[in-house]
C-alpha cells in the first residue's frame, strides 16, 4: 500500500478567548498519519478531542500551528477554500449522525456529491453502492426518523465516504449506540479501512474502538500524554 502522508499537524494550538480570559484547549499538538491508517484519539471529557478533530477537519481554525491534508496547509485557508477541502478531502461522521431529517437515506448520501457537483447519474450509482456496502440497500427511501440509531449511523458513514475523501473523521461514532450496534459499526469501520485506502481518525471513550485502531493517541488537558504508536 502507498504510505503517503495524509495528515500532519505541526505545533497545533488553540486558545479560546472571552474578553481577557484565555482558555488554552490544545497545546502544540504534533501528529502524522499515513494513507490507510486507522487512528483513535482518546481522553477524558474536556481533554480537547473535539477541538482537535475540528482543527483537523477544517471546521475550526487554530490559534497557531499547521494542519496539512496531503500537501495543503488548511490552517491558512479561507472559508471558501476550506469548504472545498471539506467537500473533496474529508468525510465526517458525528456522534448524533446529523442526517438531514426531511431527506431519504439515498438523498442524504448524495448530498456531499451534490455540493461537489457530481452528475445526478453518477452520484445516484455511488450512493446506491455505498448504501449496499453499509448493508442498507433496502432502506433507500426511508427518512432518518424511520430508521434505528444503528442504521442512521451507517448512513452517516456512507455519507462520509461519498466523495472518496482521503481522510474520514469520526466523532465518537458509537457514543450513541447500544452494544450490538457498536459492534456492527466497529466491524464496518474495520472493513472499510481494510477495503479502501482511506485514513480514519476516531475520537472515542470506547475501549472496543481503541482496540481496533492501529494508532492511538491520548489527550489530557490539550496535550498529548501518550503519542501515536503502532498497535
Amino acid at each position: 500500500m502507498d504510505r503517503a502522508l495524509i495528515l500532519r499537524a505541526v505545533d497545533l494550538s488553540k486558545t479560546y478567548s472571552v474578553g481577557k480570559i484565555h482558555v488554552p484547549v490544545l497545546n502544540k499538538i504534533n501528529l502524522e498519519l499515513e494513507r490507510g491508517d486507522l487512528a483513535a484519539i482518546q481522553g477524558p471529557s474536556g481533554s480537547g478531542k473535539t477541538t482537535l478533530l475540528n482543527m483537523l477537519g477544517g471546521l475550526d481554525t487554530p490559534t497557531s500551528g499547521e494542519v496539512w491534508i496531503e500537501r495543503l496547509n488548511i490552517a491558512l485557508m479561507k472559508e471558501r477554500e476550506l469548504s472545498r477541502i471539506r467537500c473533496r478531502k474529508i468525510g465526517f461522521v458525528f456522534q448524533f449522525y446529523n442526517l438531514i431529517p426531511n431527506m431519504s437515506a439515498l438523498y442524504n448520501v448524495e448530498l456531499p456529491m451534490i455540493f461537489a457537483g457530481t452528475s445526478k447519474h453518477k452520484r445516484r450509482q455511488k450512493a446506491l453502492s455505498l448504501l449496499k456496502t453499509v448493508g442498507l440497500a433496502d432502506k433507500l427511501s426511508n427518512c432518518p426518523h424511520e430508521l434505528s440509531a444503528g442504521e442512521q449511523q451507517r448512513i452517516a458513514v456512507a455519507r462520509a465516504l461519498a466523495n472518496d475523501p482521503a481522510l474520514v473523521l469520526m466523532d465518537e461514532p458509537t457514543g450513541n449506540l447500544d452494544k450490538e450496534n457498536t459492534t456492527n459499526i466497529i466491524s464496518l469501520i474495520r472493513e472499510l479501512n481494510n477495503a479502501r485506502a482511506q485514513t480514519f481518525v476516531l475520537t472515542t471513550h470506547d475501549p472496543m474502538i481503541t482496540e481496533c485502531a492501529q494508532k492511538k493517541l491520548t489527550l489530557h488537558h490539550g496535550k498529548i500524554t501518550q503519542g501515536f504508536k503502532d498497535a
Binding site: S83, R86, N98, I100, P101, F115, N163
Partner: peptide, 16 residues
C-alpha cells in the same frame, strides 16, 4: 441552523 452547519461540514459553500 444545525442543518446548515451539517451542510457546511459536508462541503456546502457559502454560495450553496
Amino acid at each position: 441552523t444545525r442543518e446548515i452547519g451539517i451542510m457546511k461540514a459536508l462541503g456546502a459553500k457559502g454560495t450553496d
